[in-house]
Design a protein around this nucleic acid. Structure first.
Lengths: 347, 347
DNA sequence: TTGTACGCGTTATCAA
DNA sequence: TTGATAACGCGTACAA
């Protein structure tokens, strides 16, 4: 195979122009179509020409232009993951798992943070529209059905965690009422009767109220009266919220022997306060969290937690989204993944 | 050119086709150019036409197609952040900060995970080329200068954390030798003499060896002999690595009264082992980590840590990248951000 | 098996 | 101030 280039492109030498299919085609002395076919494998190409094209691609260090390909194919190969805050470990792990799973399916992941701001949640649906991403996996934080329906564009969306009641949209989540009830029941089974709850949030239509319902249901079934003084709302789900909530509980002077936290981060924050007040965990106060983040395994003591099947959440959400991308008319599906209790030393 | 259709609305009205500038232009009875100008503000448009166009946009719920715009403008408005693992809190916080900072500057962030695999690090530079992203912020994990130079494409790159020595590339990082020396010196100032080090990794050209150099330098300056038995390498930087490394140290039976960990996660894992063996922190063993992740504040006890100015890292990296995107010929710049020691209860 | 010509939706250039 | 036209780089229907 002789390497004579008979047609020396002055284009390449004059200015550092972009290398495109045309340049490759010229060098390999074939048509752009053939180059395209070699790359896509879409149509058969003879072995010899294929080799020549491959060589030319290598020679010019050609790589296809994504913008052009996307425009032509009407797909970007990117999905967006919109969530409140990446630095919250539960979401960080979600990003981790999703990036990994998406890569296996030929997608990359764009991360969008709403930081709990309603306008950001709206922007997610508006701003990501039309060709920037092929679909959105959206973990909202208290968006109403009405707003959602009004603002959503044509981009496929899968909702995560928080269901928007009545909305005509694919959804993956867990039975939060049951999870909360199980967590509370676990504490009751450990002999606790004065069980506090940290993490409800007012006004949101999401997981908070559902967990409160589960908590109260478990109490009711055990014949334990509900005591409003044992409940503390938090603004967000960080360590500091848990620490402050626990401090408030203790300062109220209300008797308690266990705490159910709506998030592991809240639980770890709560344990921090308990330790600093000289209370023993679980002897004086048992603590259970939610999410099973890695941090909980190394907390002091290791944190018991109720958690959804996170792998199932990731893969279900992705599969649902890809199905929706392929067929916008597919019937809406709502997936509930199972949850389990990881019993560790904090209870 | 045989069938040159003028303004064939009948074709478009038959099916619910995509809404483009053309549709808007038709409705507003202007040219696509004008619509484009109203959107971009690139050229003056009379108030009346502007209103008509705005109305038509609203009426049709038009939003521009990103793929087309990107192709035309030769930019995507997306930058990639390539790092080992998002679920590692330090990186999660980095993503958080960067997504936020990028948004302020009109960019979105695509997250790419290398998971420590060399081929993934190569893929970052190859796969992200040509129009998919405008630039890459890359936190590598032991890539050689030679490979880097050979594989890098034309996409602007800013390196993070680990410098690739001699490489002709923008870089943001910290003086790891000094940081390690300061951490070790802090322990020495607390009266410790038998100081272990957890987290070196063999073979990589990165932060690990640098921190080891700083550690040994501080010992030397304090006249403390280096004891190889006090050093433990780890495969990665997770909790479990720290826990196992600490266990190994204790099992060696070598006397120690402090540990310097190359990562907060390692330190928290190490403290887990110390607690479970009944050792008191810092009374029996003082512990210092690196990174100042949020988790450290709520560890038991709260973790002393040496940390770079993370906000400076984020903004410097982004500014460097944006500068590089604007001017590929700009002189290479390497930024070192300062570090500080957050003293908490673990020392 | 390969090549030609067109269009994806947008914006920049040139002309009016 | 506005419009017609070309081009960004690619994939594909149609022709050979």
């Amino acid at each position: 195979m002789s390497h004579h280039r008979w047609k020396d492109d002055s284009v390449r030498s004059s200015r550092p122009s972009q290398i495109g299919v045309r340049e490759v085609a010229n060098l390999a002395r074939v048509s752009p179509t053939t180059v395209s076919n070699v790359l896509s494998g879409n149509r058969p190409v003879s072995a010899t020409t294929r080799e020549r094209v491959r060589w030319a691609i290598e020679e010019l260090d050609y790589r296809p232009n994504h913008s052009a390909r996307n425009l032509r194919l009407q797909r970007s190969g990117i999905i967006a993951l919109a969530l409140p805050e990446v630095r919250v470990p539960y979401f960080a792990e979600l990003v981790h798992d999703l990036v990994r799973a998406a890569r296996d399916r030929g997608y990359r992941v764009l991360v969008e943070q709403t930081e709990g701001r309603t306008e950001s949640e709206h922007a997610v649906m508006h701003g990501l529209d039309r060709g920037m991403v092929d679909g959105i996996i959206f973990s909202p934080l208290g968006i109403t059905r009405e707003t959602f329906e009004r603002r959503r564009g044509s981009t496929p969306i899968v909702l995560l965690g928080e269901r928007i009641l009545g909305a005509d949209v694919d959804y993956v989540g867990t039975d939060n009422v049951a999870a909360a009830a199980d967590a509370t029941a676990h504490l009751i089974a450990r002999g606790r009767r004065r069980i506090a709850a940290i993490g409800d949030q007012r006004g949101t239509g999401g997981t908070g109220p559902q967990r409160t319902r589960g908590y109260r249901r478990a109490l009711r079934r055990a014949g334990i009266p509900y005591d409003a003084r044992l409940t503390v709302r938090t603004a967000t789900y960080h360590h500091s919220d848990g620490a402050e909530a626990m401090a408030e509980l203790l300062d109220r002077g209300v008797e308690l022997d266990a705490v159910y936290c709506y998030t592991d981060l809240l639980a770890i924050g709560a344990m921090h306060t308990l330790r600093s007040r000289g209370l023993r965990i679980p002897d004086d106060v048992a603590v259970i969290g939610t999410d099973d983040i890695d941090e909980g395994r190394y907390a002091a003591p290791p944190l018991t937690t109720v958690t959804p099947d996170k792998a199932a959440i990731t893969t279900s959400a992705l599969d649902l989204l890809i199905r929706r991308i392929a067929d916008p008319e597919a019937p809406v599906r709502q997936v509930l993944v199972p949850h389990t209790i990881e019993v560790r030393d904090s209870t």
